[in-house]
Design a protein around this nucleic acid. Sequence first.
DNA 1: GAAAGATTGTTGTTGACGACAACAATTGCC
DNA 2: GGCAATTGTTGTCGTCAACAACAATCTTTC
Lengths: 168, 168
Amino acid sequence: MTANPARADIHLSARKRAGNGAAPRDVADDIGLDALVGHAGYAVRRFQIWIFQDFIRTLGDVDIRPTQYSVLTVIGANPGLSQMAVAKRLGIERARLVHLLDSLEQRKLVKRTKSKEDRRSHALHLTAQGETALAKFKRLAAEHERHVEAKIGKANREQLLRILAGFT
Amino acid sequence: MTANPARADIHLSARKRAGNGAAPRDVADDIGLDALVGHAGYAVRRFQIWIFQDFIRTLGDVDIRPTQYSVLTVIGANPGLSQMAVAKRLGIERARLVHLLDSLEQRKLVKRTKSKEDRRSHALHLTAQGETALAKFKRLAAEHERHVEAKIGKANREQLLRILAGFT
DNA sequence: GAAAGATTGTTGTTGACGACAACAATTGCC
DNA sequence: GGCAATTGTTGTCGTCAACAACAATCTTTC
């Protein structure tokens, strides 16, 4: 959505002194970014904000946020994992994961069981309810991914995934 | 920095053959991500975290974070802008910009002057000190950008910027 | 085998950040 | 002149990352 064709051509020739004397830019539309254009971090950040908003909106009915989805996906693909392992794999702190799992466990999607081998750790599993729910989440996530495709183009999305494959 | 060198030696199957046949993958290295791979949002998020950390570290000596840098850059390229215009252009809330400018003004990098045309708004300018400081920040930011190039490759970085140009 | 050290889950604090709501001063519209 | 809208400001709330401390439990070392 919001196919912004008017915005797409700003990135080149943004902010050049077009010689007009006193144009009182009352709106924030033709404001130059100067050195900001050309910074990968800025573009990536704006894109990430857009992606997360679309993800949250697309999965709004089931009330699942990106981080929750990633936790469920990893547990679903690797049952019995410890909290430490999940946190390390996803790059979130174990302190943060505690609250995430509290929420997911309250919603009966995940259960923590005491590990037999290491009684310090918890073995994480999806509940039966969690399994079927995750299947639905994955369908919605695929729909979200189609939104990304529609936004930047199918070929560009694949290019992007290829370029950033090392960060997963 | 968050290097954590003590961790670096665990990562490759150090204890996989612990003798017990169960081997419940106690390390988080060969954990499958399943559906997470192939999600643009996940890759973009991880990449953005890496970029910001490198930016913060590279500009750590001058104590400038990405958002502050973007504000300074926009003001430097468009002197006299109102807070509303800056906030709208960068996609930050004007409430948030207040604190950002408070900090930057305390550090004598930016000054707010009452606008003559609209006495509600403030005209934002860099101080002389702010100008020279921004020049230094830009050199450091360029160095950070070279880190990005070294990480994903020069051609890939340009591809990325081209793909995401519509979001700036 | 016991002491010393490391790891796991947990709780709490701090700070950056976005979203919202309310407010005074000011401007624009009618 | 009166009323709605805008601008900067203050405040609250919720998310999120980074740390620090702690009890329970392994692991190492002597």
